[in-house]
Amino acid sequence: MANAGPHPEKSFRALQGLAIGLSAFWAVLATAHVCPLRAQDWTARRQEMVAAIRADVIATRNYIGKGLLRPDVLAVLEQIPRHAFVPEDVRPAAYENRPLPIGFGQTISQPYIVALMTDLLEPAATDRVLEVGTGSGYQAAVLAELVARVYSIEIIPELARRAKERFGRLGYTKIETREGDGYFGWYDAAPFDGIVVTAAADHVPPPLVRQLKAGGRMVIPVGQRFSVQQLLLITKAQNGDLKTRQILPVRFVPLTGVH
């Protein structure tokens, strides 16, 4: 039996190879975990991000009802330093067209979705907008460049505190923040021309509907944190009637052969 076996030296080398391979694997894993990517030219990357949004919008024009988003919305996205709204470890990916984790089980939405939601709100310079779920503060910052006043509520104290600090540091004076439950909206500041709810619950909070002005618009993304399934647009007519539009933010026809 011993004769049939391999040479011990060769076996040793094989095991040595295996050990080196495993070490290399763990080294790659560790590197991927701890080494941040090199910072890039933020302005150029913002322009690339907006170009990616434009391309996605053109691709989904049949579904969102328009081939172009409002130029002022895209211009704002091109100005706002998104990298200042994300944690250090994901900063190199700040301008990729994808959602990013911001800690506390929350995300900063994909720029394409932020752009769509902002556009759907049809913001005007005199508007007062309520945001339920401040998160990183990026959506509020985008809105603040387009409307008169933004009221933003965040339920997670650490996120609320950080967003408030960030707004102060970046000079967003038109944003008012509050820490707490957003279900009942912001009664003192109501009614609002627009309301953004950053994560859908199982139903639309009726108090928010009441705080929406006649002619106002409410936008809610529906789906999981990293994959928005649809955008819910609720409009209140002048007579108070409510209508919901369910917008699939993707160019996907469920039937083949029908376009």
């Binding site: 691709a59 990293f226 994959s227 399934q229 933010p249 993707v250 160019r251 996907f252």
Partner: peptide, 13 residues
Amino acid sequence: EIAALRTAGGIAL
């Protein structure tokens, strides 16, 4: 088709 639409909302599909 879903993979091609990954960044334009395709993941949820």
